[in-house]
């Protein structure tokens, strides 16, 4: 089941393919209709963990899964669906490494339950590119070297994509002099304030800001 899901995946980059396949095969997620892979582990539990069926729509694909209600959206992505691009940093909404887009809006996937997102359009870092064509924000991060270790990068990029949408819609920020102004000029101060939910421990901030500025100007 998991294998079929992987093969029909739309836009995963070839370089990730091997790693993703391994991830999916090792995942403890139970696609509907399949049995738990490891019956020894299941039998060792004193009581079975109650699960609930849910359907998630991620990167324009539907997944039917049976999960413990406690499963966060981040853990569903990483541990049960093989989508390990979204990263777990603090697991408390403070670092932004887990940022994904739900209905085009950026959220911390660690601070929400998978069960609360049935039917929502979820986009992760794996779903931004069109085939081999990078999303403009991804391309800008590459061009500007907007990272060092890269761990925060998927969250930074998803956050930036959401942020550019907010700015296009004219949403003000704490850095805006006049919150009633109809449009937003994305100065560096605006970009920094709007991206404050994403931490980069390598402190690649100057290049991250430059990449987002480029992407904003291009759009």
């Amino acid at each position: 089941m998991a294998k079929t899901d992987r093969r029909s995946g739309p836009t995963r980059r070839t370089v990730l393919e091997g790693g993703v396949a391994t991830g999916v095969l090792l995942a403890t997620g139970i696609p509907v209709g399949a049995k738990p892979a490891d019956s020894v582990t299941a039998a060792a539990l004193p009581t079975p963990v109650p699960t609930m069926p849910m359907s998630l729509r991620i990167n324009a694909r539907d997944f039917a899964v049976e999960l413990d209600p406690r499963t966060t959206l981040l853990d569903a992505l990483r541990n049960h669906l093989g989508l390990t691009g979204s990263k777990k940093g603090c697991d408390h909404g403070q670092c932004g490494a887990c940022t994904v887009l739900v209905g085009g809006r950026r959220i911390n996937s660690c601070l929400t339950l998978a069960a609360m997102h049935e039917g929502d359009e979820i986009t992760t870092i794996e779903g931004l590119a069109e085939g081999d064509r990078l999303h403009p924000v991804q391309a800008a991060f590459v061009a500007r070297d907007g990272f060092q270790c890269g761990y925060c990068t998927p969250g930074q990029i998803c956050s930036a994509v959401g942020m550019l949408g907010e700015a296009r819609a004219g949403w003000p920020s704490h850095a805006s002099a006049d919150v009633a102004a109809a449009s937003v000029a994305l100065t560096d101060a605006e970009i920094r304030e709007r991206m404050s939910g994403n931490i980069c421990r390598c402190a690649a901030y100057p290049n991250i800001v430059a990449a987002i500025r480029d992407a904003a100007e291009e759009a």
């Binding site: 909404g93 932004g96 940022t99 809006r105 950026r106 959220i107 911390n108 601070l111 929400t112 956050s159 959401g162 942020m163 907010e166 819609a169 004219g170 949403w171 003000p172 920020s173 704490h174 805006s176 919150v179 009633a180 709007r194 991206m195 404050s196 939910g197």
Partner: peptide, 27 residues
């Protein structure tokens, strides 16, 4: 971001935007 709040209750918009992060405010 509501235009009515921004123009008539700017203090409320300022307070909201001074709190948390954009990801958390979206949720």
């Amino acid at each position: 971001a509501d235009p009515r709040v921004r123009s008539r209750y700017p203090m409320l918009t300022q307070a909201l935007l001074a709190g948390a992060s954009a990801q958390i405010r979206n949720k």
